[in-house]
Every structure is written in C-alpha cells, then in structure tokens.
Design a protein around this nucleic acid. Structure first.
Lengths: 190, 190
DNA sequence: TAATTTTATTGACCGGTGTTCAATAACGAA
DNA sequence: TTCGTTATTGAACACCGGTCAATAAAATTA
C-alpha cells in the first residue's frame, strides 16, 4: 500500500543480513529466497534490491562479515602466551577445522560454491584467511616450511572440512578424527 | 503437435544423457535446465520426465556411469606389473587427482554438491571409490596404515581436488603442485 | 487385417524463482 | 510550504522444476 515506511521501521542492511543469515544457514543458498527473507522482514522482496544489488551480493556481504571471525580465532591462538609453539601449531589447525564445521554454510560459500553469480564476488576473503593461516603455521613450525608444504597442509585441512561440511556432520561428532588428522599433518612436517 | 514421434527419432535415455552431460559440464547443475536440454533434443521438457523421474536422477545416472572410470583407473595402476609398490602408490594418488580435475563436474556432483535433491541419490558411488582407494594404498604402503591414516590421506587428496575444482583450474596447470602434494602425503606415511 | 491396448510425447498449467521498474509516499532541507 | 531525495511497493517479465490430461504412434491381440 504505502510506498514508504515510517522512519522507525525502515529497512537497514543490518536487519536484512540478520534475517538472511538465519535463512541461509537454515535452508542453504538456493532454497533461501528473496521473497522468504522479505516475508520475515515484513517488506516486499523488491525493497531488498534497494539495499543489495542482488541475492549473491547479499549472501556475500553477510558471509564476509562473519568470516573475519576466523582470522580472530587464528589470532587468539597465536596470542595465547601460555602455550608452546607446538601447542599453538596444533591449535591453529584444530581450531580451523572447528571453525569450518561450526560455520558450515559460510565455509561453503567462501570455499565451495561454484555458482557463477556468487563467484565473482569472492576473492579477498578466502585469500586473506589463507595468508593468515600460512603465516601462522610458518612462524610456529619447528622446521622452516616450503611454500608448497604450507599449501599442502592447507589443502589437507580444507579436505577434512569440506568432506564433513558436505555430510553436514557437526564438529562434535568428528572431534577425535579432527585431532588425529591434525596430528597426521603435524607429523608430516616434523 | 503430434503427441508421439515416429519410431526412428524417439527419445532414449542415452540420447538424453549425452546432451545433458554436455550441458551440465558447460553450465553446471543448476544452470543447465530441463528446458534447455529438451530444446537441444528437439522435444518438450515434459518428455524427459518420462525417462527420468527428475533432474537430480538424470544428473545422477549420467555421472554414475562416468564415475566407474575412476575405479578402472585405480585398477589399471595396480595391475601395472612393471612398477614397484612405491611407484604404484605414487601413481594411485597422482591419478586420483588427475581424474578429479579432468572430470570436475562429475567430481563436484559425487563429492561436493549439497543440493538436497541430488544428495539422496548419492551414497554408493563415492563410497565404492573410497573403498577401492583405501584398499589400494593399504596394500601398497611399506608400513601398515591405520584406518585413520588412510582416511587422512584420502581427505588430503580430496582437499586438493576440491580446491582446484572450485577455481576451475585444469589438471595441466597444477601437475607439479599435484606431484608435490602427493610426495608430501607419501612422506607423511613413511 | 481390424480392434485394442500399451507407450511415448506434447503443451498447458502450477507454484515457485531472481530481477526490474514506474508509481508513490515519507523524509529532510530550503 | 515547497520541492527534491529517498525508500518502498507490487505488478510484470522471463525463467525454473514438475505434473498431467489428451493424444497419436506402436505393439499386441483377435
């Protein structure tokens, strides 16, 4: 009816993202539609396009914000001064898996989605996270690591997360396996 | 117009799958629509549903046939009697990556797609391939491998393929990296 | 051969999707 | 108060996967 809402309940990017996050996590990228998001927000689906160019960008902006958590997680491990480098190295790897499996939809978007719409928006996020990751494990490793070794470690971690993302297994269910995978990789660079 | 075609150009599963494969490989699962497939086949999209229950099953039947190639590849490596076990082990891993990156859309379907429609059809295929893989590397390894070690190797391989599938990198472009990743993993179990 | 049953195809239809855009009302500034 | 700016609506468009009654070709039976 009225083409513009009263000021106190105008749409905001934050409000949209909050609802979108819930729905994306609950239903995945394709099943979560702009219309469903709009329904929950009590607005028309057209309104969302005033704030976001399209669905892919909405998804991307949502996930990019969340993904900075991963960098924070890695940083917090590094700054835990009570731990030895060996412990820190283990924690970096272990916490990476934990993050991936407790943020499966985000991980999927950042590292797995092949959707052409979405793909064009992705570059920086995953790259930044990898750099942080690589720098961390290099500084903690007893032996100096080659670039290729670092990359192999990352891909091996990625494989673990990817697999259990796909089967929607919770981190809790694979804690022990995660630990043994991490130990397997640490052994490989010792 | 006519509700049934003359015998000589009736639809067949094979004809549909052939066209579908092209389109799926070219455009991916979601962008390749039943209507596009039907257009190429010069039939109505409804006709395809006479031969396949739905899109997911069409995709699945197409890919399952192709995927038996992977098992054949692994078998052929094992039966290469001129090679040492060490060489065979290397080849199993290397050829796994090669297969994954030269059949990216298939790999994606079998191991990556989260689509709920598709997922219900997938179980046996990937499982069989893993069993074959696990059995092979166990029989070839100098040291006996634990189940967890075998699994870690697989996940690490999977990570490599997944990553380059996502970025649509050809196998040729990452041959050397593949070799070094394989050597990294072999070292981890030596 | 003629009648009948089975089979394969069509195309309209349903409810859904992402996206665009003219119309419009609330807002903020002059 | 006027007027431009801004945010919102909802209809429209072109797609999508999937269903199904109608129908004609093919196969089978008499």
């Amino acid at each position: 009816m009225s083409p513009r809402k009263a000021a106190h309940d105008e749409l905001t990017k934050v409000a949209i993202i909050t609802v979108a996050r819930d729905l994306f996590v609950k239903e995945g990228y394709s099943a979560a539609s702009m219309r469903k998001i709009a329904d929950i927000l009590h607005c028309s689906h057209g309104a969302i396009y005033y704030h976001f160019k399209n669905k892919a960008q909405l998804f991307y902006e949502m996930v990019e914000a969340d993904f900075q958590q991963l960098n924070q997680v890695l940083e917090s491990v590094l700054s835990e001064s009570a731990d030895t480098n060996e412990q820190k190295l283990y924690n970096i790897l272990y916490r990476y898996i934990e993050f991936g499996l407790t943020h499966q939809k985000h991980y999927e978007l950042m590292f797995l989605i092949r959707d052409n719409d979405v793909k064009s928006y992705l570059q920086e996020g995953p790259n930044n996270s990898y750099l942080q990751f690589a720098q961390s494990i290099n500084s903690l490793s007893a032996k100096p690591l080659s670039i290729k070794e670092t990359w192999s470690i990352f891909l091996s971690m990625h494989g673990f997360v990817t697999h259990y993302c796909k089967s929607e297994t919770s981190f809790d269910e694979v804690k022990e396996l995660a630990a043994s995978h991490v130990n397997f990789l640490i052994k490989a660079i010792s």
